[in-house]
Write a protein that binds this DNA or RNA. Structure first.
Length: 491
RNA sequence: CGGGGAGUGGCGCAGCCUGGUAGCGCACGUGCUUUGGGUGCACGAGGUCGGGGGUUCGAAUCCCCCCUCCCCGACCA
């Protein structure tokens, strides 16, 4: 798996000379086989691997640190939007799941149900949460009595479990980590405004500014909508193979759950009213998106903001002067506030080490070797561009600073340019199917409609979102027929 | 659930048809060598061959039963 040459063909391995193909990367190229490339990056960059139970995932430290940084970026924005973190239980009474009709229908096939505990069969089975909508609403009903209790803005970070037919590390696993926000508002307009605020100020901002992945925002068609929602808003990104990935969703739940769970409040006049709600989430899928949006044939490319290590200082060879200089540079960069790792291993060849750091996506590599050092210089390598420059020792901190300051923007620009080359505006369903097969087609929704959506589905295509022709979000008064559908293949 | 495939050192596989007590690549350990883009050489450690039963002097190999996993068709953060 780690070696593209070590395939099933044993005789070939035996006959093959020791040398591997010169100058080839450690990975299958993205163009050759994107899914395989993805799996190899996940394995070789030590991001994650499969757990012992089908569909489960072990997130390794390198991958988890990336997740922690994404999480921090999202969390601080959630708090800025006024929500507070809380925690609700993993186990949900089965009966709760049945209270909202569409919700039951949507989740029933994905549920894991615990039937035994303490060595005996449970009188009432408990569901392992696939989402916490129901438990949280049960408590909302208790906590909300007056309009003074509103809005109630709660978020939780947790794991959820859903039966999955085709698991893929980070993208679709049986158990995954996420954040789910749940809110209750006095009226529809307030709920809508909050759902949109989360969509743009929390999700879009974190994804574009921190993860450096450009997204399209819009709302889902009825077919793609969250089970039980009136409207589902989404951030959609294009991956390196032209397929779409939903990176975050924010739902306007209307009063469906409020009615199912009896969440009512007394308004200023004393009248009893049902609340209007929202829910929203992003998950560890973001890590998968990061890999697929930015990765290249040499591995992961991390925006500095998310990189566990921003700079690796590499001693090219064992040499006292080299080690001293490398160590001094490491200290200097650390003092400047960078996350730096000093790689002074002498038991591993230089080539191996550079390939490893490249696979892991570390944004900047500072190579300290005797040759450059004799001239008072080191080699600074920019991961996302794969450019090298000789930099005087005194200029290293400045060079690193410049790269760290620009890398995120450049990655985003590159991803955006790629998306644009793969996006076309078309006028018919047939054209949309053609363009959508390799990228995004923008087509008037009235040309698609629900029947068109079915036809697209037969070709593995979906409407990723609906938006205004200028890319803006639909306003309350906008009819879907006046909107543009973004059509593409998706994960 | 329907169709196809696979279980053999940590990983990926060969061996099975034509039974004779297990091998290759990678990874791992030790030593030397090398280190400016996956160094090279030598030596070494590591396996209840998914489980159970049967046939046989002898089973990874043949027969029966069971278990597990993977791939393809009914979905999503």
């Amino acid at each position: 798996m780690t070696d593209a040459d070590a395939t099933s063909d044993g005789t070939r391995a035996a006959a093959r000379p020791a040398a591997r193909p010169a100058a080839k990367g450690a990975l299958t190229s993205r163009a050759e086989d994107f899914p395989r490339w993805y799996q190899e990056v996940v394995a070789l960059a030590e991001l994650a691997e499969n757990g012992p139970v089908r569909g489960t995932m072990v997130i390794r430290p390198w991958g988890y640190e990336i997740w922690e940084r994404l999480q921090a970026a999202v969390d601080e924005r959630i708090k800025a939007a006024g929500a507070h973190n809380a925690y609700f239980p993993l186990f949900i009474p089965e009966a709760f799941m049945r209270l909202e009709a569409e919700h039951v229908e949507g989740f029933d096939p994905e549920l894991w149900v615990v039937t035994h505990g303490g060595g005996r069969q449970l009188e009432e089975p408990v569901v392992v949460r696939p989402t916490s909508e129901t438990v949280i609403n049960h408590f909302f009903a208790k906590w909300i009595q007056s309009h003074r209790d509103l809005p109630l803005l709660v978020n939780q970070w947790c794991n959820v479990v859903r039966w999955e037919l085709r698991p893929r590390l980070f993208l679709r696993t049986t158990e995954f980590l996420w954040q789910e926000g749940h809110t209750a508002h006095a009226d529809e307009a307030d709920a809508r405004a909050y759902a949109l605020r989360i969509l743009t100020d929390v999700y879009r901002d974190a994804i574009e500014e921190v993860a450096a992945v450009p997204v399209l925002v819009g709302h889902k068609t009825a077919r793609e909508r969250f089970a039980g929602a009136m409207r589902t808003w989404t951030c959609e990104a294009m991956m390196g193979d032209g397929k779409a990935l939903q990176m975050g969703t924010s739902h306007e739940l209307g009063q469906n759950f409020a009615k199912a769970f009896g969440i009512q409040y007394s308004d200023a006049t004393g009248a009893l009213r049902y609340v209007w709600q929202t829910s929203w989430g992003v998950s560890t899928r973001l890590v998968g998106a990061l890999i697929m949006a930015h990765g290249d044939d040499f591995g992961l490319r991390l925006p500095p903001a998310l990189a566990p290590v921003e700079v690796v200082v590499l001693c090219v060879r064992e040499d006292e002067a080299v080690c001293r200089a490398a160590s001094a540079l490491t200290d200097e960069l650390r003092r400047a506030g960078r996350r730096v790792h000093l790689d002074a291993r002498t038991d591993t060849g230089f080539g191996r080490r550079t390939v490893d750091w490249e696979l892991k996506g570390v944004p900047v590599r500072v190579e300290v070797g005797p040759r450059d050092l004799a001239e008072g210089k080191v080699t600074v390598v920019t991961r996302h561009l794969r450019t090298k420059e000789a930099v005087a020792l005194a200029g290293v901190a400045g060079a690193v600073e410049r790269i760290c300051a620009s890398a995120g923007r450049e990655l985003r620009d590159e991803a955006l340019a790629f998306r644009e080359t793969r996006t076309a505006t078309v006028g018919s369903l047939a054209e949309a199917a053609e363009v959508g097969a390799a990228g995004f087609a923008r087509v008037p929704w009235r040309e698609v409609g629900e029947t068109g959506e079915l036809q697209l589905a037969a070709q593995a295509l979906t409407v990723r979102c609906l938006q205004r022709s200028d890319g803006g979000l639909a306003a309350a008064g906008d009819a879907d027929d006046a909107l543009v559908a973004v059509v593409g293949r998706s994960y």
